[in-house]
Simulated assay, not measured.
Amino acid sequence: MSLNGQTAVVTGANCGLGRSVAELLARAGAHVTMVCRNRERGEQARAGVQRAGAAAGAEVRLELADLSRQTEVRALAGRLAASLPAIDVLVNNAGVWLHRRQLSTGGFELMFATNYLSHFLLTHRLLDPLTAGRGRVVNVGSHAHRYGDLRRAGLEAIARGEAWRRGFEAYGNSKLGNILFTFESVRRWGERGITANTLHPGTLATRIWRGNLSPRARLMGMTRSLLPRPEVGARAVMRLVDDPARDDVTGRYFKLEREESAHVQAYDTDLARQLWERSLEWTAET
């Protein structure tokens, strides 16, 4: 399916999976807005994606935002809504994995703030343009969500990092939050015509391993050259947004291109509702 003339937004698009997704979207003819944190790396990535999509006539824009800061997420959403009256594809991909507890400027555990809460807020703020466009939302998850447990401690303690035990568990919590958000958004926004799916893109050779001193991350860093390239996961993302056979597929969890069952907590509707309502409070969206 050609995406000629369609509009796409990709977060965390300066490298790895996000950049690969942006390139494939541009090659398919979509006009792509890349959301990055660093201007220099973002401009370099934008130039590469522009070259990739040149033959298809794609236009590629760069937006800067530190997604761990809610003020910047709101400002980003405002700029996007003003410049893009219709959004056909939104890929919530930006993410970090940390080996020690850190807090965002808003007082949230940094992975929870970046990997989950920012995308919850951004998607809420883009509801009107998503409704006006095709409204295909892909929230990038991870197999690591199976190591999360949002029932072990109160949601407030998890969100604030007060229940911190291990970095990989906290990373799993943020990814489990993404899946709960995906499934609950279908229940709440399905009548708008918006679809939402989540997927594990595979264990890829990306920069997420850098700067992480945990044994698991060190092992992944040492074997990085043996891991699949980001394009493998990017193709799985594209199947969810450019395959007409999947236009009605929503509220699903995929491992690459194969649908799977997620962790049992992902299907806990009470937990999903509680997380949604607390997230509205944490983002001042109530």
Rank of each mutant, 00 (worst) to 15 (best):
Glu191Ser: 13
Val237Leu: 05
His145Asp: 03
Val237Tyr: 05
Thr223Asp: 08
Met222Arg: 14
Gly221Asp: 10
Gly167Ala: 11
Ala153Ser: 13
His145Leu: 08
Gly161Val: 04
Ser185Arg: 04
Glu231Cys: 01
Arg188Tyr: 04
Phe168Val: 15
Ala163Cys: 06
Glu162Arg: 13
Arg207Leu: 14
Phe183Ser: 00
Ala234Gly: 08
Glu184Phe: 07
Arg224Cys: 05
Asn178Phe: 09
Trp189Glu: 05
Gly190Ile: 03
Ser214Asn: 06
Arg210Gln: 13
Leu226Met: 15
Leu213Gln: 14
Gly148Met: 09
Ala159Gly: 06
Asn178Cys: 12
Ala196Glu: 03
Glu231Ala: 08
Val232Trp: 03
Gly221Asn: 08
Val237Cys: 06
Leu213Thr: 12
Glu156Met: 11
Asp149Glu: 14
Glu191His: 15
Arg146Val: 07
Gly221Phe: 12
Met220Ala: 10
Glu162Thr: 10
Glu191Met: 11
Glu191Cys: 11
Arg160Met: 04
Ile179Gly: 01
Glu156Arg: 09
Leu226Thr: 14
Ala157Phe: 02
Val237Arg: 03
Arg224Glu: 13
Ala163Tyr: 02
Met220Thr: 05
Arg187Asn: 10
Pro215Lys: 06
Ala170Asn: 08
Leu226Tyr: 06
Glu169Leu: 13
Gly161His: 04
Arg207Val: 15
Leu155Ile: 02
Pro201Ile: 10
Arg152Thr: 08
Arg224Gly: 11
Gly177Thr: 04
Leu150Lys: 03
Arg210Lys: 15
Met222Gln: 14
Ala153Asp: 10
Arg160Glu: 07
Asn197Arg: 03
Asn178Thr: 07
Trp189Ser: 00
Gly172Leu: 14
Thr198Val: 15
Ala163Phe: 04
Gly177His: 02
Arg152Lys: 15
Leu213Lys: 14
Gly161Asn: 04
